[in-house]
């Protein structure tokens, strides 16, 4: 009998200890690194294989290089079908070149040349996500070459430019200094007016979606909006 009570008491103590441990974790108190000890350390090769992120200062760029002329060939083969031979874009696929001086226009054309702040991002993105239907298939030299070509058709680098881990961070992008990286919001200051907040006579419908023919059906099967 007493041994039963002892065991019960011990069990309660264990439960209490577990609960207090849990309470520590839930309270957001920090644990020492390795406290849980789950998982394994990745090998250097595993890290190199996955750590593909490239920063504007060049950190993350791999060895290798590629010229504008080599890039023109690979681009024609791998990229032009969607982006156009000179980056003009096909269909709704993104335009890569042109658009300088349009950012304040009625219809701005943000491209690599007119908009992108960093050339390193171009290498990173091609390497990370392109060519769209078969990504991660191009060796670093090819990615460098395509990067060089896209910069070239945007008049950012000359015909003899060779992209590599030293030259890319130095390529000066025209729109680089036009970005504000600290969120300036709130940039509106609406008040909680409840009565007579506006002159009813001045409230006019400025635009309506009625009759615009842009809206897919929201009943029946998916609406492909094929021209009739």
């Amino acid at each position: 009998m007493s041994s039963f009570l002892d065991r019960a008491a011990m069990r309660l103590a264990v439960i209490a200890a577990t609960a207090s441990l849990a309470a520590v974790a839930w309270a957001g108190e920090t644990q020492k690194p390795g406290y849980y000890g789950y998982g394994t350390a990745p090998t250097p090769a595993q890290v190199v294989g996955w750590a593909i992120g490239v920063r504007p200062d060049g950190q993350g760029l791999p060895p290798g290089s590629g010229s504008v002329s080599k890039g023109a060939d690979i681009y024609a083969d791998q990229c032009a079908a969607c982006h156009g031979t000179f980056g003009e874009g096909e269909g709704r696929y993104p335009k890569l070149a042109g658009g300088e001086g349009t950012l304040r226009a009625e219809r701005p054309e943000p491209t690599v040349g007119s908009y992108w702040p960093f050339a390193t991002t171009l290498f990173d993105y091609i390497n990370r996500a392109m060519p769209f239907p078969s990504p991660h298939a191009l060796p670093a030299d090819d990615v460098y070459a395509i990067t060089a070509y896209v910069l070239n058709i945007n008049n950012i680098v000359g015909n003899d430019f060779v992209a590599d881990l030293n030259s890319l961070p130095k390529a000066k992008m025209p729109n680089r200094d036009s970005f504000i990286w600290n969120d300036p919001r709130p940039d509106t200051s609406a008040k909680e007016c409840m009565k007579n907040c506006a002159d009813p006579k001045k409230i006019k419908i400025e635009s309506t979606a009625e009759g615009k023919d842009l809206t897919p059906r929201t009943t029946g099967p998916l609406d492909e909006m094929k021209p009739k």
Partner: peptide, 28 residues
């Protein structure tokens, strides 16, 4: 890391072009 990467999805896309031609980034 010790600084942002400025990925395509936080430069070319997901930035906001203002009327004055400047753009806002990291407006999360």
């Amino acid at each position: 890391g010790d600084q942002p990467w400025f990925t395509r999805e936080e430069t070319s896309k997901y930035t906001e072009l203002m009327a004055d031609g400047r753009s806002r980034g990291f407006t999360w």
